[in-house]
Amino acid sequence: MNPALFLHLMSIESRRLLSYRVDFWLTMVVSLIVQVIVVWALWTAVFAESGRDIVGGWDLHGILAYGIFVFLMGRIVRGGDLQMEVATEIYDGSLSRYLIYPCNYGLTKYAQQLGNIFPDILQSFLMALIVLPFMGTSTTVDLNFTGILMSLPSLLCAHLLFYIMGLIPQMVAFWADNVWSLSVMMRMVTMLLGGGALPLSLFPEPLQTLLAWMPFRYLFEFPTLVLLGKVGLEEWITGLAICLAWCVVFLLLTIPVWRRGTLRYTGVGI
């Protein structure tokens, strides 16, 4: 695809998202306030009632920082409103127009997804600046400029992986009428097993070993740990390489599903 077209699609999507500014800000502000209250209340209670200073390798302020940053990162990784776009287009027949365009459908959708997350990145950055002064000092995290720079590529790789992982459940729409449940299922499972709800270091050891071999941790936990300075340079490069390798694996799985699906597609819509 022509890079100019790719950028143009991104720009259209960013502007579309910002056309509903009240929704855009309301969703973020309320969700962040709730997340701060829940994370603060939960971990304060756990540390107070367990009587421990360190839980799963985290002190109280460290785990609070994790809870807030994994939330901000998670919003970007999931990519906002377009999570069901492919399934909807298959279902209502609007996929037909993309099939006759002289550009790749997957790349078109990815450009739209990227356009959708750039306002989210700026918004999350702003929210982080607001929250940061209220965070206490932690001995288990080291938030610094290098970590912030390293987290950006990790975030983009995580977003790409989430996008590609989400394509197969959405393409089930070639065979079934309504597949939103599959996408919701994927979201719930990835949130828990990817560290979106809790740091994976709190999970039982055998499960941690199993999860290290799976793609989920690269979605939410890995970019957050990079940001919080808990990942060294070598581990970071290895992590990015593994994340991209998982992208290739899921892409290879997606291709035959897409080919079979488009053969079945009638373009009638509802």
């Binding site: 597949v179 449940s181 919701v184 809790l198």
Partner: peptide, 26 residues
Amino acid sequence: FRIVMDCMFYAVEIAFFMVIYRHTEL
């Protein structure tokens, strides 16, 4: 699909607290 989705939701909710209670009694 919807039945499986809700069962998954139940499993995730229960698993969340099981993990928390590995680190505290109350």
